Amino acid sequence: MAQIDYFFATTSPYTYLAGNRLEQIAARHGATVTYKPLDAMSLFPRTGGLPPKDRHPSRQAYRLIDLARQAKKLGLPINVKPAHWPTNPAPSAYAVIAAQNAGGGDVGALVQNILRACWAEERNVAEDDVIRDCLDRAGFDPALADRGLLAGAETYAANLEEAVSRGVFGAPFYITADGTPFWGQDRLEDLDLHLSGKL
């Protein structure tokens, strides 16, 4: 069975733009997805990148244009300067980790709910009530937001270390079972072709 390790940040706009395409691709190929939320702002300096706020003004300006353009192309609503960004991504990442461990719901839908809350709904994904609502809408017990925080913190930190060791440098980032990497929501078609044996 095909396997995809999915490294992402719960406050990443480009992860938001991926929508549910990864899950559709996985379903087509009978692949399983392991969700690995990480701290992108800690990843960037360790892999030669810069957080958005530290990039040259021309790069910052282009990022906003590109986000709006990609969202329009994909038919997704977006506020390129959301009210609650940046915010602490850890609580929502811990919830994803707890949900994946607990099972019984749709982890992909949870990730999308969290990202949509940030980038389209002007909600703060660091707040408990927002996280609980996202969990509930994805079929999970909202109380997962309050449980397993220590384990979540340990896994969150471990995901970052794993990402660095495996050559991950941005989000979203996908690695197949044979070690083939794909960076960015705009490379999901390539991931699909690779799993089909065409690329």
Rank of each mutant, 00 (worst) to 15 (best):
A158N: 11
C134S: 06
V130N: 00
L135N: 04
S165K: 05
L149Y: 07
E161T: 14
N159G: 00
A151H: 07
I175W: 06
F140A: 02
A143G: 10
V130A: 03
P181M: 06
F182Y: 15
C134W: 05
V168Q: 02
Y174S: 09
F173S: 07
L150A: 14
G179T: 12
Y174E: 03
R147A: 03
P172M: 13
L150C: 12
R137V: 09
R147K: 13
L188D: 04
R137E: 12
G184P: 06
D129Y: 10
E154R: 13
D133L: 02
A171T: 15
T180N: 10
I175V: 14
G179F: 02
D136T: 09
A157R: 14
F140K: 01
Y156Q: 07
F169M: 06
G179I: 10
L149A: 12
L135I: 01
F182I: 04
D178W: 09
T176R: 11
V164T: 15
V164A: 14
L160H: 01
V130T: 04
A138Q: 04
S165F: 03
E161Q: 13
D146H: 08
L160I: 13
C134N: 01
G170N: 08
D146F: 08
L188R: 08
L149N: 12
D136G: 00
G148Q: 06
R147C: 01
T155A: 14
G152Y: 02
G167A: 07
D129V: 14
A138C: 06
E161M: 11
G179N: 15
D146R: 12
L149E: 08
R166W: 10
P142R: 05
C134I: 02
D186S: 04
L150P: 08
A145T: 02
P172V: 03
T155V: 15
G167L: 09
E161F: 11
D186A: 04
E161K: 08
F169E: 05
E162D: 12
P172T: 06
T180P: 00
I131V: 09
R187Q: 06
P172E: 07
F182N: 09
N159S: 11
I175L: 10
D133F: 00
P172R: 05
V164G: 12
